[in-house]
Amino acid sequence: MRHTPPRVALFATCLVDLYRPTVGFAAIKLLKEAGCTVVVPEGQTCCGQPAYNSGDKADAQDIARSVIALLEPYDYVVVPSGSCGGMIREQYAALFAADPEWKLRAERLGARTFELVSFLVDVMGMTGVEARYEGMATYHDSCSGLRELGIKGQPRALLATVAGLTLAEMEDAEVCCGFGGTFCVKYPDISVRMVSDKVERIRATGADTLLAGDLGCLLNMAGRLQRLGHTVRVRHVAEVLAGMTDAVPPIGEGQARQGGAR
């Protein structure tokens, strides 16, 4: 029995911080609706994945130490990204395999760290949202969220309760979109080919909206859709679940299309 609401630290991720603040505010709104007290710890930067995945272990460890110290005081850490959530939850402990003290701290934090939508459903027991969105959406399963954290049913369950929204599954929803962090700029030809395949799958559903839970993948897919002139609206799933789609145009869309500045 919990009598006081859990204190949740929102770790926004550097991409949300830089590109898409609305996702952070959508996360805050959803967490509050689920009954949490939300704190945005000051001084957060990045989870360290770029360094970790580039083989720069020393920098990744440095960054991990400061993230752990920053987030430790809270009951839970929630991240609006499967890949950054997975980094803290699964990979931090691996980074400190040779350092028992930090390994323990990493494990303890990892056990309390969750990706946003899976936290809402699996931990807070959320079964529906009060939101409306007119459109037919298709949902892309980002790799880390799917395979590292087992996120598959949770976003679909909540999306099913959004008024006005229908969900059309694409073929190969579980196949990588080709983002892969620095991969997309190190091997652009392969990456563009992968995202082109993804775009075909998205288009084949006839959906007018593409949703996912990871901003990196969303920027990649939006960028390719728009380069090819397709008008699919691309959004982070939290924006739709929080009913905040009026707050900001879809990813990569200017204010022009939304009908003037706000």
Binding site: V40, E42, P188, V192, S196, G223, R224, R227, P249, G254
Partner: peptide
């Protein structure tokens, strides 16, 4: 426009993709 067709130092990205523009103010 909400995005860029090319950006300095971002050829790896913008060779095959537009670069969505950020909202403007950071989240923090």
């Amino acid at each position: 426009r909400g995005r860029f067709g090319s950006l300095p130092l971002a050829g790896g990205w913008t060779g095959g993709r537009d670069m969505p523009a950020p909202e403007g103010e950071t989240f923090q």
